[in-house]
Nucleic acid binder design. Sequence first.
DNA 1: CCGTCATGGTTAATCGGTTGACCAAGCCCA
DNA 2: TGGGCTTGGTCAACCGATTAACCATGACGG
Lengths: 337, 337
Amino acid sequence: MSGTDHGRHGHVVTMRDVAKAAGVSVATVSHVVNNKPSARIGDDARRRVQEAVAELGYRPNALAKTLSQGSSRFIGLVADAIATTPFAGQIIHGAQDEAWKHGYVLLVANTDGNPAVENDAITMMLEHQVRGILYSTWYHREIPVPETLHQTDAVLVNCFADDSGLPAVVPDEEQGGRTATDELLAAGHRRIAFLNTTTPSPAQTGRLAGYRAALEAAGIAYDESLVHLAEPQQEGGYDATAEVLASGATGVFCHNDRVAMGLYDGLREHGLRIPEDVAVVGFDNQDVIAAHLRPPLSTVALPHYELGAAGVRVLLGLEPSVDVVRVACPPVRRQSI
Amino acid sequence: MSGTDHGRHGHVVTMRDVAKAAGVSVATVSHVVNNKPSARIGDDARRRVQEAVAELGYRPNALAKTLSQGSSRFIGLVADAIATTPFAGQIIHGAQDEAWKHGYVLLVANTDGNPAVENDAITMMLEHQVRGILYSTWYHREIPVPETLHQTDAVLVNCFADDSGLPAVVPDEEQGGRTATDELLAAGHRRIAFLNTTTPSPAQTGRLAGYRAALEAAGIAYDESLVHLAEPQQEGGYDATAEVLASGATGVFCHNDRVAMGLYDGLREHGLRIPEDVAVVGFDNQDVIAAHLRPPLSTVALPHYELGAAGVRVLLGLEPSVDVVRVACPPVRRQSI
DNA sequence: CCGTCATGGTTAATCGGTTGACCAAGCCCA
DNA sequence: TGGGCTTGGTCAACCGATTAACCATGACGG
């Protein structure tokens, strides 16, 4: 006996080889390998098969299996920008973990938002008989659905398309906005500025709505002069500093962490301390930024991991199906409040 | 004629259906679909098949194809931390683009560095008959190679294992260190501090070697008092400020962008301007940080995208094969020098 | 007028498994 | 002693392709 020879060289071990080695038919091997309760296999034969499997280092061919049973174990994930931020990575991570949990494997494709590439990617996934496709974007927005996507089960992740008939899984921007505001409120702030983004988006309107809802719930009148618009980058936050200060706010809810980062710089130049003079809360929980600012930034997390995970649950029909699933954005408390 | 009925419902169109519709055998369909030059197909039959394909919305089953020709078009990518940083995303992106270019599809798995999960992931990939596996880590380091990995072709990406026999693709730390230092040198600095990391790693030794090499090439004696150790985070950079200043440096090469970010804060507290009083160069090119600091940070990029792409090239044997491929770290010029 | 050669396609085996239908042997009991 | 049931396993069709080998048919040359 030459011992177990796994290894990449020579003939790949198939079920036939195992059958021959164990002195049984391939059907029997199939039965014991898959532990089919329907089939009656004697202890002796079962043992011989198992030994042969171990001895030969047999590994089932998942593709052949898929072919014969008709159902595949692939889930496709097409993303518009895998590499731009850690966000897409988190979606992939969540989707992969959840898919794995249900015996599925993730096929990923990056499209850079190019519609042609997008269609190629989807086509390729269809050819690989995916169980369904997760179509994701790196920031929450409305999208035009690629034609091809309708040819299989699909779920939109971090994006949506009304009337497309496709279920969507998105972050709950309004609840997030409320949460951010509540954090400031809880610390005793009454004059809270909101540095919203200039770009129209679900985030823009949702977070504003949340901000207003939180104030209202706290019995504070909405004061238009407290909400300012800023480009959603560091520069925007920095540039808005004076304006924010002029409105007399003691706490600022920034549309995202990058804006908060800019505001930090601005505040510092004005000789103000965070959180003693002005409290700041961000949004997104972009780790590299938020956790490492001075002081570390309190913020609200965008639940990308959960978005990906929920996406596969919806795809597999494991989630009570509604048109759009909103995933909560939890607060992340650090030292800026 | 009911028109083209693509769509996810009803029977999936197979080659048999097309054959029947076109009045030919499946073999003929296969020949025209794959444009086999070896087979002689008449214009008429060819046309009928193409029409039937279009009419029925036929799509080849990639899995069946793989099974019959024995070669698969999958490449597996196992990563230890997809979501932690944008880095892993960039590796995935590069690998995916390159794989795609050669007709391959990427299968990804995240393992969180857990060896058990790692083995499961690799096993699953082997069962799916991957052409080979890319094993990647999110920061450059030496790793123990999982047993299972030897059962197929594998390439280590952003990590290495001497004597494992596996080819590795890693960033060229030394060249990167030289580049960073050269940037400062080119701006006229002669007293250049190096804020190295406290953690032993290829980055630690490689970048230091590069720093020394650059100085030597410029005819500047190596001065030990100019190299300081700092925790590789924002805090480390901040805490090292006084020490750096005390050594009289006019330019600082920081081990990474986060350290530079901390140094920025420290320098600012000392009332010093960047780059007028002190020039700073980072490493990693972590976009969210580097591009948005005030002033934007000049740095050296870690070529993650290229690492992933080179990984699949090596795997597919498209790259002149050497034990370890070192990918250059290019400078990214912004305003901190 | 027949043998030969293109031309155009078909047949059937194969890839690695799965699974419903079928069969042989042994046992039990009337 | 023979009919029926259980136990243990085999047979063979099938999943959706690919591909080597083979077979008509018609044209053409001698």
